[in-house]
C-alpha cells in the first residue's frame, strides 16, 4: 500500500555549476548542470510541497543575467503539468530559509508552512552580528523573513522544534542542526503509514545535492564509497555527514530512497519526462490509486 505519490518538479536550472559547489573539496573538476526543483507529495487527502523555489518577481532577472539561472517557470506553470494549481497546495515544508527554497511563499495562498524554529532564530541572531560576520547571512533574503511574518500573522506558519512525526499522516520532519544552514530540515515519507515502515522515502532538501554526496569515490581513504558533504555548510561538514547517516538509516541504507533535488541523474533512476517548457518531472513513486504523469 502506498499512500503518496512523490514527484520532483524542476522549475529552473543552472547549466554550468562548479562541481565544488556540489561536492566538498572537488576543486577544479569542472561543471555540472544544477536543476532547481521542489518536491510534490500527493495523496487523496493532501497536496504538499517540499520548498517553493525563489521569488522571481523581485530578482529573477538579476539571477538570470548575473549567474546563469535559466528557464525559470512559475509554480502555476510547473504544477499545471500535473493538473494542479498553487491554490491546491495545502501544506509546504520549508527545508531551509535560503531564498531559492523559501522565496515563493506568496504563490501558495492556501498552504500552511512548516519550518524549523532553529532556522529562524539563528538567522535573526546572525542578522544582529557585525558586518565582518556577514558570511553567515549568505543566500538569505531579508524580505523572505518578512513574508514569513505575513504567513505567521495569518496563522499559516508553524515553527517546528526538532523531529516531529505525522505532521501529515506518515510524514515526519527532522532537524539537521548547524549543517547546510542553522536549522535545515529533511522530510521523511513513510508511504505505508507504518511506524516501522518498509516503504520510506527521504526528501533531503539541500542536505544532499546529488547522489555523489551519498556515494562518492572513497579511494582516497581506502574505501569503495563514502559520504561527501555538499559544498556549502553554514554549520559543519561533520553535521552534514551525520545527517546523511540518519537519513540513510531511515531508508535502511538503500541510497536510491534518499532523494536529492539538485540531481540531474534522477532521470536515470526514476521514470521521467521533459515538459513543453523544457523542464523535467521525475516520478519517484506512485500512490496506489494514481496514474503516472510521466508515461
Amino acid at each position: 500500500m502506498a499512500n503518496y505519490s512523490i514527484h520532483v518538479l524542476e522549475y529552473s536550472y543552472v547549466a554550468n555549476y562548479h562541481k565544488s559547489g556540489v561536492l566538498y573539496g572537488a576543486h577544479n573538476e569542472g561543471y555540472v548542470k544544477l536543476p532547481y526543483c521542489y518536491v510534490l507529495i500527493r495523496s487523496n487527502d493532501h497536496i504538499a510541497l517540499v520548498d517553493v523555489g525563489y521569488n522571481h518577481k523581485d530578482y529573477g532577472q538579476h539571477l538570470a543575467e548575473k549567474f546563469g539561472v535559466e528557464n525559470w517557470r512559475s509554480p502555476k506553470v510547473v504544477l499545471s503539468e500535473l493538473g494542479l494549481t498553487p491554490e491546491d497546495v495545502d501544506t509546504v515544508f520549508i527545508t531551509h530559509a535560503h531564498f531559492d527554497h523559501f522565496g515563493s511563499v506568496e504563490d501558495f495562498p492556501n498552504a500552511t508552512f512548516y519550518i524549523q524554529r532553529e532556522e529562524i532564530e539563528k538567522w535573526v541572531w546572525a542578522l544582529s552580528l557585525p558586518d565582518r560576520l556577514r558570511w553567515l547571512l549568505i543566500a538569505v533574503d531579508p524580505s523572505d523573513i518578512l513574508r514569513g511574518v505575513n504567513l505567521a500573522a495569518q496563522g499559516r506558519l508553524r515553527t517546528v522544534e526538532g523531529s516531529v512525526e505525522d505532521v501529515l499522516p506518515g510524514i515526519d520532519l527532522h532537524l539537521a542542526k548547524d549543517s547546510h544552514t542553522f536549522g535545515s530540515m529533511w522530510v521523511t515519507v513513510r508511504n505505508d503509514g507504518k511506524p516501522d515502515s518498509e516503504d520510506t522515502w527521504v526528501l533531503a532538501g539541500d542536505l544532499v545535492y546529488q547522489f555523489s554526496n551519498i556515494k562518492n569515490d572513497g579511494s582516497v581513504v581506502g574505501v569503495d564509497t563514502m559520504y561527501t558533504p555538499v559544498g556549502l555548510a553554514i554549520g559543519s561538514q561533520m553535521n552534514l555527514l551525520l545527517a546523511t547517516e540518519e537519513m540513510m538509516k531511515q531508508v535502511d541504507y538503500d541510497d536510491t530512497r534518499v532523494i536529492p533535488i539538485h540531481e540531474e541523474g534522477l532521470a536515470d533512476r526514476f521514470p521521467s519526462r521533459i515538459t513543453k517548457e523544457n523542464l523535467r518531472i521525475s516520478e519517484i513513486c506512485l500512490a496506489d490509486n494514481m496514474a503516472s504523469v510521466v508515461s
Binding site: L63, V140, D141, P142, D206
Partner: peptide, 10 residues
C-alpha cells in the same frame, strides 16, 4: 541588492 547573491547556491 536585497540578497547577497555572491554566495548563493546559484
Amino acid at each position: 541588492s536585497p540578497v547577497d547573491f555572491s554566495h548563493a547556491c546559484c
